[in-house]
Design a binder for these strands. Structure first.
Length: 195
DNA sequence: GTCGAGATTATCT
DNA sequence: GATAATCTCGACC
């Protein structure tokens, strides 16, 4: 079943829609993902070649890739493509279908049932995914991925929040399930400026 | 309700 | 020392 994950990220991404990510007693149904094609993708962490942070992305598919961003947040990816080739799918948002009470305790700022995992960093908080989970096997590890029996309907559009791709218009590699309230609203990539 | 800027730290140059 | 695949909060309409 996980053999599917050795395909390119742009093909794997839609397959992950509707999949269930489970950690302990909390489960999330994925409603929004983003494809990253590794070294040929300027928006990818692997664009500049292998490093300590992205080493997992060069590993075998079906594993978890986590990274820190903006100092405070963790994001989770599913590694795809065969070992030696960097590629991954960023898990952007989902709907909490089990353990909502636990998720709400972790996400104290959450105000609606749909923003518990509405965003890449929120999803990792709701599921308690941390940096040390990087490289764990999604079939046997602490973080489990359950692929859907049937593919979900999906829409595609430009990626959000990615710098280095000169405006995301050229990369319509964001996929989501239409009509899901847990899908984060579209926000164009803006260059962040510090004081 | 909508918009804009600050927060905070692992990783890379 | 600069940067970053984001989130939250405070100001303003």
């Amino acid at each position: 079943m996980f053999d599917l994950l050795s395909r390119p990220a742009t093909e794997v991404a839609p397959l992950l829609l509707g999949a269930v990510l489970r950690v302990g007693d909390v489960a999330v149904r994925l409603t929004e993902v983003e494809a990253y094609l590794g070294e040929v993708d300027p928006g990818s962490h692997a664009f500049r070649g292998p490093g300590k942070r992205n080493a997992v992305m060069y590993g075998p598919p079906g594993h978890l890739y986590t990274y820190f961003t903006y100092g405070m947040h963790t994001c989770a990816n599913v590694v795809c493509m065969p070992e030696g080739v960097a590629s991954g799918v960023l898990l952007r948002a989902g709907e909490v279908i089990e353990g909502a009470g636990i998720a709400r305790e972790r996400r104290t700022t959450s105000r609606t049932p749909f923003d518990l995992a509405q965003g890449p960093a929120r999803l990792t908080v709701a599921l308690d995914i941390r940096l040390e989970d990087a490289g764990s096997n999604l079939e046997t590890g602490r973080v489990r991925l359950e692929l859907p029996a049937a593919p979900a309907p999906f829409s595609a559009g430009p990626r959000t929040g990615v710098s280095g791709d000169g405006g995301s218009d050229e990369y319509p590699w964001r996929f989501w399930i239409p009509g899901e309230p847990s899908v984060s609203p579209y926000r164009p990539a803006v260059k962040r400026q510090r004081a």
